[in-house]
């Protein structure tokens, strides 16, 4: 079975983002970029499936500018076999990404597709579900456990109020939650080896997908700042302030 993993290049999660002064977006020039943390978990899960003999090949795919090949190389260094770069300079909406992935699925025929549950930049949490709809396949979102048994996969999902277990018929689309696994680090020899692994580049039009916009970002602004608070010196003072000043207890 082939496993397809979709990954995204995003601003490093530990960077404090700055809104541009012209309110058009967030500053990305000279900002450290990284693989989206949820995508790292998806790559790790795919590599583990390969190591346990459940998968034969792990293909990673990313859509974006040429520099997202860096994140694809990282995924190759972590154990993926080959990479597909969907080359576009246009900012893509989740629906378009889902259509591009649908087209890649039709070519590659994977038994399983793994994606992160959300990218930490746009926080949409949409692509996996949209891909499942377009390909008419079952979905296991927010997965914290994935077990392949024959032609089915059992997924434990993190839902409000607890955990839910579903059994899906393969091929299935799964999105990863934080608890699924602990991603490994790439070793230097593996980073060197990754440079020789195949990387294919393809454009949206070659995949037969027309990039259209459904939405328009009118403005990006900073959220209202909270006023700096006061430091109290004792529990008694805290209780007094909560009772008499804030009046919340």
């Amino acid at each position: 079975m082939k496993v397809l993993v979709a990954i995204k290049r995003v601003i490093d999660p530990y960077v404090k983002v700055r809104v541009k002064s012209d309110d058009t977006g967030v500053e990305t020039n000279n900002v450290k970029m990284a693989m989206n943390p949820f995508c790292e978990i998806a790559v790790e899960e795919a590599v583990r499936l390969k190591e346990s003999g459940k998968a034969q090949e792990v293909i990673v795919v990313s859509a974006g500018e040429e520099n997202c090949q860096e994140q694809l190389r990282t995924a190759l260094a972590l154990g993926a076999d080959r990479a597909i770069h969907i080359d576009t300079e246009i900012n893509l909406e989740p629906l378009t990404v889902a259509k591009l992935l649908q087209s890649v699925m039709e070519k590659e025929l994977p038994g399983l597709v793994l994606l992160g549950k959300q990218s930490i930049d746009s926080d949409n949490n949409q692509v996996a579900q949209m891909l499942a709809a377009l390909t008419k396949r079952p979905q296991g979102t927010f997965a914290s456990e994935v077990n392949i048994e024959g032609d089915t996969v059992t997924v434990v999902r993190e839902v409000d109020g607890g955990l839910e277990t579903l059994k899906l018929t393969l091929p299935a689309i799964i999105s990863t939650d934080l608890r699924l696994n602990e991603p490994r680090y790439a070793s230097l020899p593996n980073i060197m080896k990754a440079k020789k692994k195949p990387m294919e580049s393809i454009t949206p039009s070659e995949l037969g997908v027309e990039v259209v916009w459904h939405q328009q970002i009118l403005e990006v602004t900073s959220p209202p700042e909270r006023q700096g608070g006061t430091q109290v010196t004792s529990v008694a003072e805290l209780v007094d302030k909560l009772k008499n000043e804030a009046k919340v207890i």
Binding site: Q129, Q139, D160
Partner: peptide, 23 residues
């Protein structure tokens, strides 16, 4: 925008061939 809505709504949007506004 609970896990119920997050799981379901993008699937509806894609079936309707429209984008989604999340959260």
């Amino acid at each position: 925008a609970t896990t119920f809505g997050k799981n379901l709504m993008p699937r509806i949007a894609a079936l309707l061939d429209v984008a989604q506004l999340s959260d």
